[in-house]
């Protein structure tokens, strides 16, 4: 009986391990970080989110869209309705057709989503030597290693090892699969002037923008974990009660 249980557990473990390792064959081992949003009780550090938003708007949005995030969502990370309206108004949204049948541009409002820097993929490629800067809305979920990988990527630019030739237009990155990435190192020391006066080192910006992108990919994370704790505790208690009932009812059979 116990052996069967052990094998069953091993099967589950193997299934999970298999699922986890399936695509990891070519990926580079990424150092693991501690994130405020990790673990059973994780939450997003609000300061990091706001700084990360600054990094996205100051550095990344020139090339990368965030088209699944609406300006109104920024109220969830601590901005007021007025601040959100102001940010939205900085963007130009194509709307229409008007009564003349023409499309026109208007200022963004909170219900709009972040405006992509390029109108379509082909324009994005044309402006970036044929490479397409991907949308970042779910990037943290779309790469093995998630937030750890993104942080490693941002901080992984360095000189190529001796003897390695990096073609024109590519950069060496220690953690990008294949080690050659078309994106030049986006973060430079003091590249952003943080509103909260934190020193903008590359590591700091990498951490902040990764936290922001983790939120962008999983805005429901805090609610999910909170609910999860309550639900699992409830089920635990209910299962305990059901076990007691089961033993009581079965007492005349055993």
């Amino acid at each position: 009986m116990r052996r069967k249980l052990i094998v069953a557990l091993a099967a589950v473990g193997l299934a999970v391990a298999v699922a986890g390792t399936a695509a990891a064959v070519e990926a580079v081992k990424v150092p693991s970080q501690t994130w405020s949003f990790g673990g059973l009780f994780g939450t997003f550090d609000r300061g990091a989110l706001l700084r990360g938003l600054q990094v996205y708007r100051g550095v990344c949005q020139g090339c990368h869209s965030l088209k699944l995030v609406a300006f109104r969502n920024l109220q969830e990370i601590g901005l007021t309705e007025d601040q959100v309206k102001k940010i939205a108004a900085e963007y130009e949204v194509t709307d229409g057709p008007n009564d003349q049948g023409e499309m026109f541009k208007r200022k963004g409002n909170p219900s709009d989503r972040f405006v992509p820097p390029f109108p379509n993929e082909k324009a994005a490629r044309a402006a970036n030597n044929g490479a397409y800067p991907p949308d970042l809305s779910v990037m943290v979920k779309a790469r093995d290693g998630g937030a750890d990988y993104l942080y490693a990527l941002m901080t992984g630019y360095r000189e190529p090892p001796a003897g390695m030739q990096v073609p024109e237009g590519m950069q060496y990155n220690a953690y990008f699969p294949g080690h050659q990435i078309a994106m030049p190192s986006p973060l430079v020391e003091d590249g952003v002037e943080y509103a909260d006066k934190t020193r903008a080192t590359v590591a700091q910006m990498a951490r902040d923008v990764t936290t922001f992108l983790a939120w962008a990919a999983e805005p429901e994370l805090e609610a999910r974990k909170r609910m999860g704790v309550k639900v699992l505790l409830f089920i635990l208690v209910l299962t305990g009660m059901l076990y007691a009932v089961k033993r009581k009812i079965w007492s005349d059979v055993h």
């Binding site: 299934a15 999970v16 699922a19 986890g20 399936a22 695509a23 059973l40 979920k141 779309a142 790469r143 093995d144 998630g146 999910r224 974990k225 609910m227 999860g228 704790v229 639900v231 699992l232 089920i235």
Partner: peptide, 15 residues
Amino acid sequence: FGFVFFAPNMLGETI
């Protein structure tokens, strides 16, 4: 529900 709430994407593929 342990998976649903705390590891919802563990069994899937990131790509």
